[in-house]
C-alpha cells in the first residue's frame, strides 16, 4: 500500500519544491497542508503517515504542531524541513520528537538519505 506523505508549508513554492524532491521510486500518495492546523486535520484523515513539516508558518507553526503531535501521541513520523537552521531550532524540534531535520531547500539526495536511514525507502 502506498505511504501517505503530508507536506506542510505555508509557501506553495516550497510545497512544490518538496514534492519534487520525494524520490520517484517511493510508492507514495502526497497531500498538502498550509499550516499546522491543516496538517493535524489531514493526519486525522489518514493522510500523514510521514509528515514533512516547515517551522515558520502562520496560524500554527511547526514547533507548536510538533508539541500537539507529541502531547496527543498522534501516530505520524515527522521530518522537519526548515530554513531556520539555528542550533536552537534543531535542538528544540529533536527534543519534541522529530525524526530528523532537513535544511531548506531540500534536495532529492538528502531526502533519499534520510528516508533510507529510517527504513522508509
Amino acid at each position: 500500500m502506498a505511504l501517505s506523505i503530508l507536506i506542510c508549508d505555508d509557501s506553495s513554492f516550497a510545497r512544490k519544491q518538496m514534492a519534487r524532491a520525494v524520490p520517484a521510486e517511493l510508492d507514495a500518495e502526497i497531500s498538502y497542508a498550509c499550516n499546522g492546523e491543516e496538517a493535524l486535520q489531514a493526519i486525522e484523515e489518514g493522510k500523514g503517515e510521514l509528515l514533512f513539516l516547515d517551522l515558520t508558518m502562520p496560524v500554527l507553526d511547526g514547533f507548536e504542531t510538533l508539541k500537539v503531535i507529541r502531547k496527543n501521541d498522534i501516530n505520524t513520523m515527522v521530518i522537519v524541513v526548515s530554513g531556520d537552521i539555528q542550533p536552537e531550532a534543531y535542538q528544540e524540534v529533536m527534543a519534541n520528537g522529530a525524526l530528523d531535520f532537513i535544511k531548506k531547500p531540500a534536495s532529492k539526495d538528502k531526502i533519499r538519505e534520510v528516508l533510507t536511514k529510517f527504513g522508509i525507502l
Partner: peptide, 22 residues
Amino acid sequence: EQRDCYQEISNVAMGQAADLLA
C-alpha cells in the same frame, strides 16, 4: 505565485543569515 517564490527564497536566505548571527 512569484511573490510566494520570492518570499520562500528570502525565508531560506534569512535563515542562513540568522544562523550566522546566532
